[in-house]
Structure formats: C-alpha cells, structure tokens
C-alpha cells in the first residue's frame, strides 16, 4: 500500500513558541522523504503531529486527501505506522506477541489473531532478521534488536505511510543499511527523520531541512545537501562530493581549524 502525504501549513506551538512553523511538504506515493536538521529543530515534533500523538495548532496533514488529524486513532493506525519513542515495554511479552500487536488496528477489540495474522508477523520478523528471537521476552533484547522488532511491528500494520523518527538509532551499521533498504523497498510512502546526512543522501528521494521549526530547504539530496547549507544550518565546514559508486552526495565534515 502507498499514498500521497501532504502537509499544509502545519504548525505546532507550545508555551508560546512555535516548535514547528508552517511546514509544507509533499511525499508522492512510494517516495522516501527525509527530514534532517540539528537537534531541537522540530523533526520529532513534526513527525508526532503526522502520526497523531500531538495535535497541531494550525494546518493540516492529508493522506490521499483525508485529514489525518480528524481520524480516529484506529482508522489512522490502519494507514500510518510508526515506531514510538517510549516503546520500552518492560513486561514479558514475547517478541512475536509484540510484533503481532501491529495487527490490532485491523481487528475488533475482542477478535483473536488468525493464522494469516501470525504469518504476517512471522514474515516481518524474518524481514528484519530476528526470526530466531521470536520466542524471547521482548525486554531481554538488545537496543538494536528491539528497534528491529518495533520496525517489524510497524510493517505488520500494513500501512500506506511509514513515519519513522531516527529508525537507525542504536543499530550497528550493517543493520542501519538493512533497515533503511527494507523501508525503501517496502512499497510504502516513507517520512523519516534522519541524523546521518550520508544515509539521508543515499536513501531519500527528497530531503527537507528543518531549522528552528521552519523548513529552510527542500529538494533532492543533490540540490539540498550543499556545503553552503551545512555551514548555515549546522554551522560546520564540510565537503560535499558525489560518490562514484552510489551517485549520491557524500558529506565529509572538516574540523573547525582545517
């Protein structure tokens, strides 16, 4: 499944400060769109407005024209999946049970999972490479394994839109690449906040740069990730070149004195 996401003048204010200020953004079906920007630039707040745990003060978020903000949590969860920030889950559910929770938005509350649901969970576990851990208690997993299980849970929701905040946090480099490849190939429209500009450059079709709550640059990674932009937004000196093998921009940071 896939869909078009449009944000129109989306703003979120708290304590009189605009943490997200009139964000406009479009993600076409199947596109992977990256949000980058320094810490505190509003990436997480913007994503939370999209997946529905924050109520924007102005503007709209539309998925194929339907307003995400007025949907019930259940209707939204059938179309939008995410990995929440407080997903610590310290009760001893098994990894399989945690992943199977992703079927909930498609079920009446008293309905039990069917064999087809179990197969979906099993396939997702396999795709993120933790099928062998299925019967382990979720709290006993390492940070990276948990992250992969929660990505699997999001896939099991069969969403049209994946909204992920730093999906590669806590992951070894190998799994960072695997997870991002998986997300890109999952057929969903993806909105990702990413810290690592090189990952953003390689995996995203379009990148939006946030600074103090405003989108200050938008475009393809080649258009956006330039030495000038990194200097103004991040305050760093960097060299940006096109990598011969990937064709994507590659950022090398230079120490302040160089």
């Amino acid at each position: 499944m896939t869909a078009t996401l449009r944000l129109e003048g989306l703003s979120y204010a708290a304590d009189g400060r605009r943490l997200v200020d009139s964000a406009d953004l479009t993600a076409a079906p199947g596109e992977t769109v990256g949000l980058v920007g320094p810490n505190g630039s509003g990436k997480t707040t913007l994503l939370r407005c999209v997946y529905g745990t924050l109520r924007p003060s102005h503007g709209r978020a539309l998925l194929d024209g339907d307003d995400l903000l007025t949907m019930t949590p259940k209707a939204r969860a059938r179309r939008v999946a995410t990995v929440p920030q407080d997903g610590q889950l310290d009760f001893e559910l098994t990894v399989r049970e945690v992943v199977a929770m992703g079927r909930s938005p498609h079920k009446r509350f008293w309905e039990a999972d069917t064999a087809a649901d179990a197969d979906l969970a099993e396939a997702a576990l396999d795709r993120v490479g933790i099928a062998a851990l299925a019967d382990r208690a979720f709290p006993s997993l390492s940070g990276g394994e948990r992250q992969r299980a929660l990505v699997a849970r999001a896939l099991v929701q069969r969403p049209a839109l994946l909204v992920l905040d730093e999906p590669t946090n806590h992951l070894d480099i190998r799994y960072q690449l695997e997870i991002l490849t998986l997300i890109r190939e999952s057929g969903t429209t993806n909105l990702l906040a990413l810290h690592d500009l090189n990952l953003a450059a390689y995996y995203c079709d379009r990148v939006h740069v946030l600074q103090e709550g405003r989108i200050v640059a938008s475009g393809t990674p080649h258009e956006v990730l330039t030495a000038e932009l990194l200097a103004t937004v991040y305050g760093v000196t960097a060299e940006v070149s096109t990598h011969p093998a990937t064709g994507a921009p590659t950022v090398v940071y230079l120490p302040p004195s160089a």
């Binding site: 059938r78 929440p84 997903g87 929770m101 909930s104």
Partner: peptide, 11 residues
Amino acid sequence: LAGEEGATVLG
C-alpha cells in the same frame, strides 16, 4: 503495555 504513545499509534 506498549505505553501511551505506543497504544495510540497502534489504534
């Protein structure tokens, strides 16, 4: 058990 935010995003 998935937390307040976790429960909300699961519908």
